[in-house]
Design a protein around this nucleic acid. Structure first.
Length: 462
RNA sequence: GCCUAAUUAGCUCAGUUGGUUAGAGCACAUGACUGUUAAUCAUGGGGUCCUAGGUUCGAGUCCUAGAUUGGGCGCCA
């Protein structure tokens, strides 16, 4: 019978002495004179299976001895439980066939490689322990997100990836056009004539699905988007990519407190979901990537997140007697060094709320003090700002005033203003950086190592 | 974008004050080995020392410029 490695690890105790057929790739081959050992992995499970092959049972023994790392093979043999050995069971081969040879220059060896080298071999790196674990967890984490929201009756919407609004101040955009870049159509004044472009207007890849999600929230109450977003900023850091995934829930009849509760519930839920389903992978991260990872995650799941206002945070920084490159100041943004100090100070995730209005987006709801907005950032160790969210300004007059002050063109966002005219209500939402969440979960320190084929400035290989 | 460091065999690295034919481990090839598990042991092949200039009798080593990569910062999720 044909088995997967995962299935064998689940059922091996019932299969002692049974005939098994397996397909997979050679992770390691240790040949001796009359016998040898192959570690076989088929991608379904983190662990490998040890295949024992002996000359007396194989007519191609000499060939099998030379099967190189990376080769695809078929194995038929007898499963043998081996409670006294390093592995709980192994396969005594009766037939081993080479399906796909791996050439002599196969770059992935049974040894440690640097992350940089493996990034350059992004097509081969999922075959290594680390990346196999990272990307299985990524897959499970995707499911965790959907399960969390679906269990709470949230409606998912696919926000458009091509939009005409870049008015959100969320950063530089990638232009989308079918105009001939060498000779674009021009107006009589010599300007590029976007009337001749595909959509008859300037368009770009989305930087956020939030505005569309707000429209859906005004119809379905609780909604979420989960998809890719694009930023053309020349950011060269371990936490930025040009193409990344965001989760953006939006909830109606809700305020900032409800928003933070949702964020906290979600973070705890998806951490627990992954820890329950990927114990081998999480144990590997805990041992080889970040010591103490499991303790950290367990304490996040079981304790309440800190909540501090921006004002309180600045005061903590000022009173810390810490030497900062950038002096903390009321009314100003937090620098990375400030964020790092705060998460260390609280030894875990911390919400910073009620930010000065001038450093935040136009759609955030103005507080009664007229100085701050009902915004929140969730800071976590290692991944920086994991979540950014706010209660939205639902009062039409205040929203329009803010748009004027910040030079946001109202005519482009007529439909967004409509949402305040027809049954508007208190509502809130946030954006969670999915890739950063994965960094936090795995302890991997570079966002390029949690995205299958990462896109960053000057890098679009694969 | 700014600052900083690095670039030597397929991979990870060493290379003294500028001086003979640039080394090691792993990988690969050949062989040895009756339970290995990043197996071990022996032998062998493998180099545009990132690129282009320059200094020098002589450059992997010093100088200039560029490329790429890592880290830090900025912008943000």
């Amino acid at each position: 019978m044909k088995y997967s490695v995962r299935k064998l690890y689940k059922e091996y105790s019932d299969l002692d002495q049974k005939q098994i057929t397996l397909f997979g790739w050679v992770r390691n081959n240790r040949a001796q004179k009359e016998f040898g050992f192959i570690n076989l992995n088929d991608g379904t499970f983190f662990e490998t299976i040890q295949v024992v092959y002996e000359s007396e049972f194989l007519n191609n023994f000499k060939d099998v001895q030379k099967f190189r790392v990376g080769s695809a093979i078929k194995v038929e043999g007898i499963l043998l439980c081996t409670p006294d050995r390093k592995q709980p069971f192994e396969i005594k081969a009766r037939y081993v066939e080479l399906i796909g040879d791996s050439q002599e220059d196969y770059p992935i060896q049974p040894k440690r490689h640097t992350r940089e080298f493996l990034r350059e071999n992004a097509h081969l790196r999922p075959r290594t322990n680390l990346f196999s674990a990272v990307f299985r967890v990524r897959s499970v984490l995707t499911h965790a997100v959907h399960t969390f929201f679906q269990e709470r009756d949230f409606v998912n919407l696919a926000a458009p990836l091509i939009t005409a609004s870049d008015a959100e101040g969320a950063g530089e955009t990638f232009k989308v056009t079918t105009l001939d870049l060498d000779k674009p159509s021009r107006t009589e004044e010599g300007e590029v004539d976007y009337n001749k472009d595909f959509f008859q207007k300037k368009t770009n890849l989305t930087v956020s699905g939030q505005l569309e999600a707000e429209a859906w929230a005004m119809a379905f109450r609780d909604v979420y988007t989960f998809g890719p977003t694009f930023r053309a900023e020349n950011s060269n850091t371990t936490t930025h990519a040009s193409e990344f995934w965001m989760i953006e829930p939006e909830i109606a009849f809700a305020d900032l407190k409800d928003d933070m509760q949702l964020a906290e519930d979600m973070v705890k839920y998806i951490i627990k979901y992954v820890m329950d389903r990927c114990p081998e992978e999480m144990a590997f991260f805990n041992k080889f990537v970040q010591k103490g990872l499991l303790d950290k995650l367990n304490s996040v799941v079981s304790s309440a997140f800190e909540i501090k206002t921006h004002k309180e945070a600045i005061e903590i920084l000022l009173e810390s007697n810490q030497k900062f490159e950038n002096l903390p100041k009321h009314g100003e943004d937090l620098a990375t060094e400030h964020e790092k100090f705060l998460v260390k100070h609280f030894d875990g995730p911390v919400f910073i709320t009620d930010w000065p209005k001038d450093i935040k987006a136009f759609y955030m709801r103005l507080n009664d003090d007229n100085e701050t907005v009902a915004a929140m950032d969730l800071l976590v160790p290692g991944s920086g700002e994991l979540i950014g969210g706010s209660q939205r300004e639902e009062r039409l007059d205040l929203l329009e005033k803010r748009m004027d002050e910040m030079n946001v063109p109202k005519e482009d966002l007529w439909w967004y203003l409509d949402l305040r005219k027809y049954g508007g209500c208190k509502h809130a939402g946030f954006g969670l950086g999915f890739d950063r969440m994965l960094m936090y979960l795995t302890g991997v320190e570079n966002i390029r190592d949690v995205i299958p084929f990462p896109r960053t400035p000057r890098n679009c290989e694969f």
